[in-house]
Simulated assay, not measured.
Amino acid sequence: MTPRVYLDWNATTPLRPEAKAAMEAAWDLSGNPSSVHSEGRKARRLVEDARDAVAKAVGGRPQDVVFSSCGTEANALALMPGLRRGAGAPVMRLLVSAVEHASVLAGGRFGADAIGTIRVTGSGVVDLDDLRAQLNEGAPALVSVMLANNETGAIQPVAEVAELVHAAGGVLHVDAIQAFGKIPFDLASLQADLLSLSAHKIGGPKGVGALVLAEGVQGLEALLRGGGQELGRRAGTENVAGIAGFGAATRAAVAALKADAARMRGLRDRLENGLRQTPGLLIFSDDVKRLPNTVLFAAPGMKAETAVIGFDLGGVAVSSGSACSSGKVQPSHVLAAMGYHSDLTQGAVRLSLGWSTTETDVDLALKAWRKLANTLVKGERRNTA
């Protein structure tokens, strides 16, 4: 039987053994973390240990980590009018890059007339001149720019963005969900004011995320109201087991980051060298800094749905881009924003690697691709005959 190869790590990752062990231990606890008795305090300790781990990983303070149900909720919590830095003016409008995740493009709690879009270059990197011009056109803005794109892997110049935003009196939110555990960063190096994270991208469980605030950020109001959990910033009984798994996955990911990144970069290069043997194949954003594990490509005559199914039949799990579209294969808004024609936006396929990916996995993927590419070439010849 042909072994299955999983190359869709940007969609979600397998659960790390450390996270599984932490969750199993948490499931044996009966206390509510808001209760003051011994059972409650044990549950609270797990939550706070995880909070410490997440804060340490990004150079924040534990009291500034707000746990959420997922990265999408963390983004929605961050995107609200009225945020400010210190004694600065509250933000009244939102600027987002054109290649953001759907949860950011939705605009959070801003009205549609208060949202502007920042252009990107053909390489998928934020156009700093366009950002500068828009910042100068109105009131202080909340700007949301992801650290690394979930489809292309392109890494954004966040520190340069932060300088422009802060000089204009604005606030910067960074969706670091896809970058977490793959490249080193912290709040200080990014100069970010708010940072979104998600557990299941680093080997933690699905259904847990976090928003981390930089010191001095004010005006955050809860999306979910009721209890006083998370210092009043997110009501609802904490997902103790999920949060414990998030903390354990964070510690494991940070400890292995340097070695994993170097190994994945080598495997990515091996994969791309094999893919480039196909005439006309295009790898997106390969001229800028990218995540070490991500390859987004398209080939002449290729439809994403056909390619994803073809890979799957060949024993390889890949995707057509973001997994947050109810399983639908649809044109990439990221590639459209980069200026690519619809035949490419509808035909792009993403392969993403992880800490357990091997050379054998890459070679099996390339074998599946060569078989698929031969079929595509034959189909293209028939169509042009």
Rank of each mutant, 00 (worst) to 15 (best):
310 G>P: 04
303 K>V: 01
294 T>V: 15
293 N>D: 15
317 A>E: 15
329 V>I: 15
344 L>S: 01
303 K>E: 15
303 K>A: 10
318 V>M: 06
294 T>I: 13
303 K>N: 10
315 G>R: 02
315 G>Y: 02
307 A>N: 05
327 G>I: 00
303 K>L: 13
308 V>D: 07
313 L>R: 15
340 Y>C: 01
306 T>N: 12
330 Q>W: 00
340 Y>R: 04
332 S>Y: 06
310 G>R: 03
295 V>H: 07
300 P>H: 04
297 F>T: 01
322 S>C: 15
310 G>M: 03
307 A>T: 07
306 T>E: 13
342 S>K: 10
297 F>H: 04
297 F>G: 01
316 V>Q: 10
327 G>H: 08
292 P>E: 11
319 S>F: 01
325 S>V: 14
304 A>S: 14
328 K>A: 11
328 K>F: 09
301 G>F: 10
344 L>K: 08
338 M>C: 09
343 D>C: 00
308 V>A: 05
301 G>A: 06
329 V>S: 10
331 P>H: 06
319 S>A: 11
310 G>F: 03
329 V>D: 07
332 S>R: 06
292 P>F: 09
302 M>A: 13
310 G>K: 07
327 G>E: 09
313 L>T: 01
316 V>R: 12
329 V>H: 05
337 A>E: 08
317 A>I: 11
302 M>T: 08
326 S>F: 14
330 Q>M: 09
305 E>D: 14
343 D>H: 11
333 H>W: 09
304 A>H: 07
340 Y>G: 01
296 L>Y: 13
305 E>G: 11
303 K>T: 02
331 P>S: 05
311 F>W: 06
327 G>T: 03
331 P>E: 07
315 G>D: 05
311 F>V: 00
301 G>R: 07
296 L>N: 06
340 Y>L: 06
311 F>S: 02
337 A>D: 08
330 Q>K: 12
328 K>M: 11
317 A>P: 02
307 A>I: 03
308 V>F: 08
336 A>T: 14
337 A>S: 15
299 A>L: 10
325 S>M: 13
312 D>A: 15
301 G>Y: 10
298 A>G: 11
318 V>N: 06
301 G>C: 09
309 I>S: 14
326 S>G: 02
333 H>P: 15
340 Y>W: 13
308 V>Y: 06
329 V>C: 09
295 V>N: 07
342 S>C: 02
328 K>E: 14
293 N>K: 04
292 P>S: 08
305 E>P: 00
324 C>D: 10
323 A>R: 12
299 A>G: 15
317 A>M: 14
299 A>E: 10
